[in-house]
């Protein structure tokens, strides 16, 4: 019914549709909010918590690296990078005491919680996280906020090649306009 070339074209079209639909789903996970000085980002990793819970309950430490970057959209040239933030978080389980140590490596803060859901939420969500100072933004311009996430088991995050070799587990973007 279809020739070989037409089959290839259909497959390419379907792949593109899937890619863009995936992007659209991911984009809904990113929300941009602002106050007078700062632009904030709220994002959640749309992954089932059971898998993470299972791993944490098995005593396996988990780490995530969030990468947030803001670009100024330029139609006929490469986008201009405005800001780039890396947030590294780790949860270390203590199976004997049923407590979870939450570490924010960027801030250097560590605390223990007894709730597994809190540990999972700590890994999978950024709540109103400050991204960029609005003084760096130009009025009337449109900006893109790209968010990506890489997850690691144990301490493998510290291996330099993982940053190069490992693909993103999650990526999303959102755009916002400066008034």
């Amino acid at each position: 019914m279809f020739t070989r070339s037409s089959r290839h074209a259909l497959m390419l079209w379907a792949a593109l549709c899937l890619f863009y639909s995936g992007s659209a789903l991911a984009d809904e996970a990113v929300q941009v909010s602002k106050d007078a000085q700062v632009v904030y980002c709220s994002v959640g990793w749309p992954v089932g918590p059971e898998h993470i819970k299972d791993m944490l309950q098995s005593g396996i430490a988990l780490s995530v690296v969030w990468k947030l970057s803001v670009h100024r959209f330029r139609r006929y040239w490469l986008d201009e990078g405005i800001a780039s933030i890396t947030v590294a978080r780790r949860v270390i389980p203590d199976l004997l005491s049923h407590r979870w140590t939450l570490e924010d490596q960027a801030a250097g803060i560590s605390r223990q919680v007894a709730s597994l859901d809190a540990a999972v939420h700590f890994l999978t969500h950024l709540e109103r996280y400050p991204v960029v100072d609005r003084s760096l933004l130009q009025q009337g311009e449109r900006y893109e906020l790209d968010v990506s996430l890489q997850s690691y088991e144990g301490t493998s995050m510290e291996k330099w090649w993982n940053r190069i070799l490992q693909a993103d587990d999650f990526s999303a973007s959102a755009s916002f306009q400066e008034p």
Binding site: M55, S58, G59, I60, D94, L95, L96, E153
Partner: peptide
């Protein structure tokens, strides 16, 4: 001893997971 048990368990689970 308890911590060793925990470590072994973690290692075992990590191995099992991987």
């Amino acid at each position: 001893s308890a911590r060793l048990v925990e470590a072994d368990y973690q290692s075992y689970r990590a191995l099992e997971h991987n």
